[in-house]
Design a protein around this nucleic acid. Sequence first.
DNA 1: TATTGTTATACTCTATAACTATA
DNA 2: TATAGTTATAGAGTATAACAATA
Lengths: 150, 150
Amino acid sequence: MNPRRLTLDRFLPYRLSVASNAVSTRISNAYRKRFGLRISEWRLITILAESDRITPANLGEKTRMDKIAVSRAASALIERGLVSTDDNPADGRSHLLFLTPEGRALYGEIAPIALATEGELFATFSAEERVLLDMLLRRVETSALNGAKA
Amino acid sequence: MNPRRLTLDRFLPYRLSVASNAVSTRISNAYRKRFGLRISEWRLITILAESDRITPANLGEKTRMDKIAVSRAASALIERGLVSTDDNPADGRSHLLFLTPEGRALYGEIAPIALATEGELFATFSAEERVLLDMLLRRVETSALNGAKA
DNA sequence: TATTGTTATACTCTATAACTATA
DNA sequence: TATAGTTATAGAGTATAACAATA
């Protein structure tokens, strides 16, 4: 091993954090201004649009949010009439969440904007570079989550 | 252009956020438990170790933190005796921050741990992949910051 | 009048713990 | 007793605005 000197500028966790914050701020501005949505709420909507009916626990897995964040985001969306619930026949402690027609309509508006914003952010990236970045990020994520237990 | 369907799992801003959060949590645990430092404080220490004497404004540029965050982090470090200040002969409104001997000693302890943690996180990455990730992250960051004005 | 830095305030995100209702 | 979900609370990051001191 060649133990390099530490400089913040080349410290990968720092680069990751700074890039992620810049992107999150940009994305969050787009959703909040136009739709009054927080990122956590937007994540739920996206998964609900892909899933039809799903429990909060399942939503948490798919959005990488903990149960508290899911509960809060779901409450806000239900309050706004974008999401509704049904009993979960398989487990009385749980329930099933799904998009209302209003929620589906909102999703229909946001999804193209989300894709367009992503397109702008990665405009200079080739298709290969996008796939590569996706893969590298998944690998770091896995590594960070596994090592956290040790 | 080939307008793909939106899925959260393949949405790059999501992947970036999730990876960054996982890494930040891991890093922040390491600093907080052992040294009682927040990430913002740790960033200041790193830059101070690289810079000797520097104004808060300059620190903000190098750490990508705004003046409020710099002010708070600096206060905490001064309180702990890790950082000290001198007048800025060039501008009476400002001052110069620098590490005390205690601050330097702490930096000497943390720096190897930071590098080791980074090494663990990116253990499966080749040197080329690390450089590539660094470059891709810088490009997204630039893109996100520029576009935010529009 | 503009700028450096501090303080007050608030909003978001995340995490811990206590609680409820079901299993 | 264990689990699904909610609520309370707090810590940390980030942002706006008001302010003091200096340029």
